[in-house]
Amino acid sequence: MPNIREIRERIASIQQILKITNAMYLISSSKLKKARTALDSTEPYFYKLQETIENVLEHTPHTRQLFFDRRSDIPDEKRKKGYIVITADKGLCGSYNHNILKYTEQTLAEAPDIDNCYLFVIGQVGRMYFQRRMNSGGNAAVDGEFLYTTQNPTLYRAKEIAERVIAKFEQHELDEVYVLYTDMINSNLQETRTVRLLPFERRHFGKAPDGTMKKLPKAAFLPSPEKVMEYLIPNYAKGIIYGAMVEAFCCEQQSRMTAMDAATNSAKEMIHDLSLMYNRARQAAITQEITEVCGGAASLNK
């Protein structure tokens, strides 16, 4: 028979946690609403940007532009790869962080040489995770000065990040740059995804409507392809990073809301079960006391 006091204490502690999870649920649902509107207004830009750039690259004439330099003289295992990973600032959001971290680990494992992988982590949880990993002998280096939050993404922050990464690319500290983030497909479905940021690849051939490959016509660039690209690519990088941040932030709030809702529900269930148990124990104790009193009285009457 469980102790009555023990049960009462457990119920009290679950109630405390219930209050917290419920509050977090409310907070994340209101944040989600905001993040959702931001996502809805940014998504057209984000997708159109990728589509247009793809289209522009099909029509780009040969340039000596730095951002198109694939540096093919560097062998595969010597290439320095940079990964911008977007995680959450705190936990308690279900499998959101776990998924993106696992995905990053996978990507790193697939890289030809893990020693040449550099991580730029946005968000506390991911930074802590990879820094701990690095300190305990893991080999992907984390940029310790890369400190950005995932809360309320702004264009300004995205611009700073883009500038930093592009500067590193220009100084040959990085040869390839990718963005790893969580994409919101719909409110129940999220997917971890990689987008390549640099270098750019020019395509010479495209698929014609009839399915054959044909040489693409070249578009004019004003004043010159180099000048336009010099301007366009930082802009593109900024747009992509901003879009990815908005997507990821929305996913985070969504997962947190779902996780906290589930936690609140299971806390309620536990309280229900425990109070049943508590009442039973209480009844048993009373019954026992009555039997004891009756027994005592009966033995006196003898």
Partner: peptide
């Protein structure tokens, strides 16, 4: 307004990219 001045575009313009 392009980098080096105003640019007018009418239907049937040649393919062009500029910042």
């Amino acid at each position: 307004t392009a980098i080096d001045g105003l640019l007018g575009i009418l239907p049937g313009h040649e393919p062009l990219v500029t910042s």
